[in-house]
Design a protein around this nucleic acid. Structure first.
Lengths: 280, 280
DNA sequence: GCGCCTCAGATTGTGCACAAAATGGAGAAG
DNA sequence: CTTCTCCATTTTGTGCACAATCTGAGGCGC
């Protein structure tokens, strides 16, 4: 969640922190702004503080350090990040807007607990967008540009390193970053931004519905995909990507309710057999 | 913008205003909540005030009553809507997150002024998502369910009524609502929510880049699409939808800068000929 | 014992006041 | 006449205090 590389994460923040130098209409003001650039060295304050906190909380949620349903108390967060409570409040509002956090009036903020339906919808939406991404990538002439190829290889290397060293959190983060990297290559920042949100929500869905057992290796599937993209037959990369997304979704147990949200009524619903066995 | 029908607009708000009755764990509290339901009769206050203001401003932007670049002063808005400045502040933050409004630190909020690139990206993203929507619709067995068919016809009637009576603002709003209605039928609320945002941003792009002349009738194209969906050959509906989106985008002049953002340097850049003519 | 009510403590929500910064105009220098 | 500087005003940003609400425990009546 966030933290899919600083450059990529920035995409989402440009909406909030748009600073147009064209907006400052006097040379004096520009000078002032430029000169005061290195101000705000104090951690926990300044312009970028909110972005930092959003990223921080986002990563914690994606890494499962903050599982779905966790209460996010304003005072605690304010203390942890060394900022005022209002700032935390603003951050929580932003995270809620992105459906990573659920705000309940007068009760506070909680790490979102997606429903099974929502989880399915998020994966469906990802398939829709990533299909377009791969189509765009497939249209670029082979061999792929060096920059693209290099970045992909470098990324795969990092994924495999994380896999070997058993760093599960890093692997999760890198896995999301891989898909975002592809979207970035496709050249549509708007679509990439939308996908970034969906990837965050996928992480949440996985956290909520992951099966205790199985976990196939994303790194392997990613490597196969890159190989197909670079020199596979037409359509092969697309097939692999769609299979990959299906595979990730298939590893979820979407019939099980997320933790703690079991519906007591349905669990203890009287079945016909119960009625017959009733001693009255 | 918003106001694509109350039911549809609600989709986006559920993120912020999620109230789970399951969260209230005592019968007493539930009673209290239920009994105090009709409280807050005062306009401009209460739980839904922010949703109302967001919708209101959103509609104004989509209807072009607030053209791109318009300053949205906090105090003025607070006065207009009869709420405190902080509430307006929160609303502006939400609109900024959706890229309908641009926040410039220490300068305030402005109706967003999309770049040509962003406009192109938004339309591309719409094509990606709406392609998936139409694919889903195309998979439903013909004839279409009565409910769907009825709603589509009713909507077309309203569009044509607006067209006949020359109510341009209503036509714009209905046009966006049509696409949202289709997304709704496709059954993926997540995708529909994303599309809702993209439609809002399309309105903004149109406001910024619309050519003075031409304006083909969306109502006609929508009617043709519905006809193809109901009883056209396979793929015909998809073709019409893609053409429709292309047509809307083609009516924009994406080579022209949006109002007031002309780059003086490039306008008055000295060309080689100027240098030769220089009297020095 | 069970359920309900009440009340203290903790947490969230909101208005207000003040600080920080930009705007626009008047005035002086070139 | 233009351009730079300074200052008053307006507008935005932020912390703080208090109000509203929820939580959980204890006491009371049934």
């Amino acid at each position: 969640m966030h933290g899919h590389g600083a450059a990529l994460a920035f995409v989402r923040w440009s909406a909030l922190c748009t600073i147009r130098s064209e907006g400052l209409n006097s040379a004096r003001a520009i000078m002032k702004t430029v000169l005061s650039a290195p101000r705000r060295a104090v951690r926990g304050r300044g312009e970028g503080a909110e972005a930092r906190i959003v990223r921080s909380i986002g990563e914690a949620i994606a890494d499962r350090r903050l599982p779905p349903g966790t209460k996010l108390a304003e005072e605690s967060l304010a203390e942890v990040f060394g900022v005022s409570r209002e700032r935390v409040r603003k951050v929580l509002l932003l995270l809620a807007q992105r459906r990573v956090v659920t705000l309940i009036p007068n009760r506070g903020a909680f790490v979102a607990r997606p429903t099974a339906r929502e989880a399915r919808e998020v994966f469906e939406a990802r398939r829709v967008i990533e299909r377009a991404v791969v189509e765009a990538l497939d249209r670029t002439p082979r061999p792929l540009p060096d920059e693209m190829s290099d970045k992909l290889r470098a990324h795969l290397a990092r994924e495999e390193e994380a896999d070997r060293s058993g760093d599960r959190m890093a692997l999760i983060r890198l896995s999301g970053q891989f898909h975002l990297l592809l979207a970035d290559f496709a050249g549509n920042a708007t679509l990439a931004g939308i996908l970034a949100d969906l990837i965050d929500r996928s992480s949440l869905a996985i956290a909520a519905f992951e099966r205790r057992s199985s976990h196939s290796c994303s790194a392997t599937e990613h490597r196969r995909f890159v190989a197909a993209l670079e020199s596979g037959p037409p359509g092969e990369a697309m097939r692999l990507m769609m299979e990959h997304l299906d595979e990730v979704e298939r590893q979820l147990d979407l019939d099980l309710r997320p933790d703690g949200a079991v519906d007591l009524k349905s669990v203890f619903a009287e079945r016909p057999a119960d009625r017959l066995a009733d001693p009255t």
